[in-house]
Design a protein around this nucleic acid. Structure first.
Lengths: 258, 258
DNA sequence: CGGGGTCTTGAAACGGCTCAACAAGAGTGG
DNA sequence: CCACTCTTGTTGAGCCGTTTCAAGACCCCG
């Protein structure tokens, strides 16, 4: 039952509209509504929309231009590497996630961002960030909100790599991604969701070796807790998985979206 | 050479002034200067100043009141625990650090904060946070800045627990705290600094067991890389320590301070 | 003087890592 | 259409870094 026969991400993803007011993401209902003036400001702040292939590096780990991004479609991840090549994935990015903020506040990027699947992003002018706080305080507030939320996610990841066993780690990863996709309405009728991560990605995110990640995945699968085929994830026993992971679900309020 | 005979944190810490304009921290030169109106706003937002003993829990891990804090003096740390008691320290807080933000944005706190030494904090009214963005956009910007910076620290910690060996982990911890204290002007003439952490704290922060943390500390000490006596830390070979840790120093710009 | 917190040390067990090899599909080019 | 390579997944064997358990020392404090 090979996991690797996953379908290529369809290039028939929803096109990126020119106007933020017609944004497909905003229409999903998972995000805050914004006033017309706020939408206008965002649209003006946006310098481009880009479509990039899987594997494309959006932010290089060293110096980078200070551009800001919102992921519009597809998956990506933030990562850091040590000089000898060991890599840690910090967190995964899903549609609606904002990134590039930290590098605005320090000299150059301190982490990298890579597209995991083919992906679309909105690019914003970093230099005008301060202007945003002046002109649209509400958006400034939202930005802090987003930042705080990502920090929460990192807290959880830190707890995971620091204190959880391999079984627990894999379980949290599966549940957490599933929940996030669910919130975005990206879980299919049959309760399955797209899952484009390779085992190497999971290993890098969980602080485990590739081989051990594989074995752990197999163990969970043998216990009937989940299945992972053709690039799709199905939680066969969410209850048991949640309990095993000691996972605390977050409330499902609407998210801000820049 | 017992490490445990550390002196109690002196209660003769600088008193907390009534007026933010006379704040001892701001006078240290490590922080941004603020306009009078901004200082006034902060002073008005502040609901109290508190002095708490070592071990005091400032934010409980479950539900909490949504108060915001700036650590004025002393050390503290953020942490998360699993239901069976395993604890992960997320990061350490030093004077000038702001905390409590995430809980404003989600139902209740998702982490706890505990004073490591006797500590003084400024308490702010969480409900008026939105007002801050409206009235003082600059402070809103600073808040995002602080949040992004803490996230950077978590990124580093995640890389540490996920990918570094025990030796490397301990080395990063020592260097990083030293650098942060240095920036605050808290390193003494003789290049030593206060170091109130117990080995248990270090273990909890690094994702290691207490015993192994101890052995690793001893090994580093035997190599002449550092010494840790009477609650003071001395980096005997910062170069070697930095190299061992593969540690990338951050630029030393001034910090925002709420 | 007793008790609790911290540090210290040894011995043994184990979880996860490394090394190594192979299988299966996808893409490429002759 | 077949060789070739590349990527990803799979599996076994053995080692080692780290954990766990256990016990003792030292110090401070009530």
């Amino acid at each position: 039952m090979p996991l690797h026969s996953r379908p290529v991400t369809p290039s028939d993803a929803p096109p990126m509209p020119q106007r933020c007011a017609h944004c497909g993401l905003r229409a999903s209902g998972a995000f805050h509504q914004l006033a017309a003036s706020e939408l206008g400001f965002i649209e003006d702040l946006r310098s481009a929309t880009e479509r990039v292939p899987a594997g494309h590096v959006l932010i290089r780990e060293q110096a980078d231009g200070g551009r800001l991004y919102t992921l519009y479609a597809g998956w990506a991840f933030r990562y850091k590497t040590l000089s000898d090549g060991r890599r840690q994935i910090l967190n995964f990015l899903l549609p609606g996630d904002f990134f590039g903020l930290q590098q605005r506040f320090s000299e150059g990027a301190t982490y990298g961002v890579e597209a995991l699947t083919e992906a679309s992003v909105c690019v914003f002018q970093g230099k005008r960030l301060w202007e945003l706080y002046r002109a649209q305080p509400r958006l400034g507030y939202d930005l802090t909100w987003l930042c705080a939320r990502e920090e929460q996610m990192l807290d959880e990841n830190l707890l995971t790599t620091g204190r959880r066993s391999a079984m627990e780690r894999v379980a949290v990863l599966l549940i957490h991604l599933f929940k996030r996709l669910q919130r975005l309405g990206l879980v299919a009728e049959d309760d399955s969701c797209a899952f484009p991560l390779t085992q190497q990605h999971m290993a890098d995110a969980l602080g485990l070796s590739l081989v051990h990640t594989h074995r752990t995945l197999r163990r969970l699968q043998a216990l009937g807790l989940h299945s992972l085929e053709d690039g799709r994830l199905l939680l066969r026993n969410p209850r048991a998985l949640t309990q095993l992971a000691d996972y605390a679900a977050q409330p499902l309020e609407k998210l801000p979206l820049l």
